[in-house]
């Protein structure tokens, strides 16, 4: 038995897609500022980068508030329970046509591997980018904090950006690993997903 549920509310989808667009823009302009290629010209790239970063900070502030206020932050709590089965699925079961060992539902939308990678992105990569980015901006514009050398800040920023690029790459591919190659994408656009009721009970990990 399956039933259709609203997996992602309109607010969540707005958050996700605005963040996605801004991050793609930031990566494109950021690596141009880094000198990896020439696309818009350094000045335009740097300007867009800063404006997109400021917009993303606004999005994040709202998103963090939303996660805290609704308790949705729990979605990203790491767990090893079911992790091995998920890893085994991607490395083996998937090719044999097995169904995914994890069945998402609104209360626990992400499988353990997914949740761990989002957590890594949310609490390691993003804050690194955010903090070093603000320092990067502040050192030149306001000479603050004083006497902080730019090089290490820039290098951490770039390293974290590579991490974000890696995340985006893998994330983009994992989208295609649903029941059909476009199933996850459709869910992220419409918010709706068909879930299996029976499996849901079977697989539900205990809270804690």
């Amino acid at each position: 038995m399956t039933r259709t549920v609203v997996m992602f509310t309109g607010l969540e989808r707005l958050w996700h897609w605005s963040q996605a667009l801004l991050i793609i823009l930031l990566l494109m302009t950021g690596f141009e500022v880094h000198g990896s290629y020439r696309l818009l010209g350094f000045g335009a790239a740097a300007t867009l980068h800063v404006l997109a970063a400021l917009a993303l900070i606004v999005v994040w502030v709202f998103a963090i508030f939303w996660h805290l206020a609704t308790g949705e932050w729990r979605q990203y709590r790491p767990t090893t329970r079911g992790l091995a089965a998920v890893v085994r699925f991607y490395l083996y079961g998937m090719f044999r046509g097995e169904s995914h060992p994890f069945n998402p539902r609104p209360k626990r939308k992400h499988n353990p591997l997914q949740a761990a990678s989002y957590l890594l992105f949310g609490v390691v990569i993003s804050p690194l980018l955010w903090i070093t980015g603000l320092l990067y901006l502040g050192i030149d514009l306001w000479s603050a904090p004083a006497d902080l050398p730019l090089a290490p800040i820039a290098l951490i920023h770039v390293a974290a950006a590579y991490g974000a690029a890696l995340f985006l790459l893998v994330h983009g591919y994992m989208i295609t690993t649903g029941r059909t190659p476009t199933a996850h994408l459709k869910t992220m656009i419409t918010g709706r997903e068909e879930i299996e009721e029976a499996a849901q009970r079977e697989q539900q990990p205990e809270r804690g």
């Binding site: 500022v33 880094h34 000198g35 990896s36 350094f42 740097a46 050398p149 730019l150 090089a151 820039a154 290098l155 770039v158 390293a159 590579y162 890696l166």
Partner: peptide, 15 residues
């Protein structure tokens, strides 16, 4: 450090 000019080649290479 001049943005757009400078980098840590090892970082770029490994990344």
């Amino acid at each position: 450090y001049l943005p757009g000019r400078d980098s840590e080649p090892a970082l770029d290479r490994w990344a």
